[in-house]
């Protein structure tokens, strides 16, 4: 079967999955446009159909419930993993079994899907704590980060609850994607020009300095344990952690 190429959207991918499943054959490669340049003979371009996507999700939801839908979304955010294959196979097995397979952890497809989703969820949870905002000169807040997975959209509702009346921007610098909250609703943003160091508010440096000092002060000297610290805060995240960067 010729690989199917879709537009990169969640609906596009589901459309492709539906086509593959209807053919009934095992396998059936699915690729997003951005990853398809390397295909030697090109692939069949799939026209995204919201209707087809919805139909597939409705069927899937009957068996797998809310928990299953959440799993698919998390897998989709795992843009560095073979997510199309995982999602395709997970839906296929669910349909074949005609029931929720979420707990069937000895099944290789379920095991890999659940493990991947868990990693994405774990990173998203981590960043609810590790994301750092700074206040810009115009009073809004700016949070740059470089997550392993495409989790900005998963984080946004959390911060809308937390800082609903502020305006803020979460910036995934690895993907140049952003989500802006204007105090009422989300505005997705593609940030093409690299925002390097936007000017900060008057008192921003003061609070950063306070936080750095606080962070140093609160450690008990007799129990220094950088290994443990690194286990919780991997070094690859340090660049944007105010308390660990020196000015």
């Amino acid at each position: 079967m010729t690989p199917l190429v879709y537009d990169g959207s969640f609906e596009g991918m589901l459309t492709a999955v539906k086509l593959v499943l209807e053919k009934g054959a095992k396998g059936g490669e699915i690729l997003p446009v951005e990853g398809s340049e390397e295909l030697l003979f090109g692939g069949d371009r799939v026209a995204t159909s919201e209707e087809a996507a919805r139909a597939l999700l409705t069927d899937f939801h009957c068996y797998a419930g809310k928990r299953g839908l959440r799993l698919l979304l998390l897998l989709f955010l795992a843009d560095t993993a073979p997510r199309e294959r995982l999602i395709r196979d997970y839906i296929r097995v669910t349909m074949e079994q005609g029931k929720d397979i979420g707990g069937w952890l000895t099944h290789p497809v379920v095991a890999e899907a659940v493990r991947t989703a868990r990693r994405v969820a774990h990173e998203a949870h981590r960043f609810t704590g590790l994301l750092r905002f700074r206040q810009l000169a115009d009073g809004s807040f700016y949070a740059p980060f470089e997550p392993d997975y495409n989790i900005a959209a998963a984080l946004a509702p959390h911060f809308a609850r937390r800082m609903g009346k502020e305006r803020w921007l979460i910036h995934d610098r690895r993907r140049d994607l952003g989500i802006f909250w204007d105090g009422r609703e989300f505005v997705p943003a593609v940030l093409d020009q690299k925002v390097e160091n936007p000017a900060v508010s008057d008192r921003e440096n003061f609070f950063q300095e306070c936080w750095r000092n606080y962070h140093r002060r609160i450690a008990v000297e007799g129990r220094r344990n950088p290994t443990l610290q690194r286990q919780f805060m991997p070094v690859r995240y340090w660049r944007y952690l105010t308390e660990l960067t020196r000015t």
Binding site: G129, L130, A219, V220, R224, N225, P226, F232, M233
Partner: peptide, 14 residues
């Protein structure tokens, strides 16, 4: 609950 950082002694700062 949620940890926001970890101090040098490896304790969670929340």
């Amino acid at each position: 609950g949620c940890c926001h950082s970890w101090s040098e002694d490896g304790r969670c700062i929340s």
